[in-house]
């Protein structure tokens, strides 16, 4: 059982965005940037992967941030400070490859900003110049601005509706940096919705600009056992849980990945509706 020490509601607009600080000393101690956990809300729950957004190894805590898009995340969101998450396994996946690259641009879209945070931090600690691009639909939905400011030398913000920062997408800002400002960039790290990652990779590809994309696919065990998370990278099948979650973004078959992500949409809808009708077995 893993105790929730703090709860923060980032956005009350549906789908809601929430963050927990959870007591998990062993995971906090072993965690490296880029790794994730699998949690189960209660005994009937499913195993859901969530990237670790922050940690405090001294206090023995990790932060997880999620959007309530399905039944499991809705049930998770109903928990409060002092409640417990039944199971949590991690840290899983390979850590981000961190070294001194030079200038690293960390791109986070939506709640993808949270998992990019520890990577920006680690890249900065390794002596890189870190410029972060944070994208959100609107100002109200922007998360982790302060944390990303600390973890980067410079941050840039884009919103789809123009309510904050550049009016446009993260790709617009990135293109501007490359083509107009002509900032020499050594590495781009991108985390966000698959479609956004795909387009960021399309922007960097013509410049042969090395790009890491961290993938969040459907998983069951998260330890290499089931292969539900498989993606094609460079023409070969890889498992996101043990070979990733980070891959060379230019090699990832995003179309196939998005197709596979849609597999359980009808079931997810059914689960959500059943849950809403019955006020959820977790409440």
């Amino acid at each position: 059982m893993f105790e929730i020490l703090e709860k923060k509601v980032w956005s009350d607009e549906v789908p809601k965005i929430k963050e927990f600080v959870v007591k998990a000393p062993a995971i906090a101690k072993a965690h490296h940037a880029g790794q994730f956990i699998i949690l189960i809300v209660d005994e009937n729950g499913e195993r859901i992967p969530l990237t670790i957004a922050d940690k405090d190894a001294n206090k023995g805590t990790i932060s997880i941030l999620f959007q309530e898009v399905g039944k499991s995340t809705m049930c998770l969101g109903m928990l409060n400070k002092g409640d417990h998450i039944h199971h949590m396994a991690g840290p899983l996946g390979k850590p981000t490859h961190v070294e001194k690259f030079g200038t690293v641009v960390c791109v986070g879209g939506g709640i993808g900003i949270a998992p990019v945070h520890p990577i920006a931090k680690a890249m900065k600690d390794a002596g890189n110049k870190v410029i972060s691009i944070l994208g959100a639909r609107s100002k109200d939905l922007l998360i982790y601005e302060d944390k990303m400011k600390k973890a980067s030398h410079e941050i840039r913000i884009t919103t789809d509706d123009g309510s904050y920062g550049r009016h446009g997408f993260v790709t617009d800002e990135l293109k501007h940096m490359i083509e107009v400002e002509k900032i020499p960039i050594d590495l781009v790290v991108v985390i966000g919705p698959p479609i956004m990652m795909k387009f960021v990779c399309k922007v960097t590809e013509p410049y042969k600009l090395r790009t890491f994309a961290s993938l969040n696919t459907i998983m069951v065990d998260g330890t290499g056992m089931c292969g539900a998370c498989r993606v094609t990278v460079g023409g070969k099948t890889k498992f996101v849980c043990v070979d990733g979650p980070e891959f060379d973004g230019h090699q990832v078959d995003f179309e196939e990945m998005m197709m596979r992500q849609r597999q359980y949409l009808p079931e997810e809808k059914l689960a959500r509706e059943t849950c809403e009708k019955q006020t959820c077995h977790k409440s």
């Binding site: 809300v41 009937n44 729950g45 499913e46 195993r47 039944k71 499991s72 069951v220 597999q263 359980y264 079931e267 997810e268 059914l270 689960a271 059943t274 849950c275």
Partner: peptide, 15 residues
């Protein structure tokens, strides 16, 4: 392990 034959009572789906 996840008892998806009993979906949606158990949360993990199966086709």
């Amino acid at each position: 392990l996840m008892k998806s034959f009993d979906f949606p009572k158990h949360d993990t789906p199966i086709k």
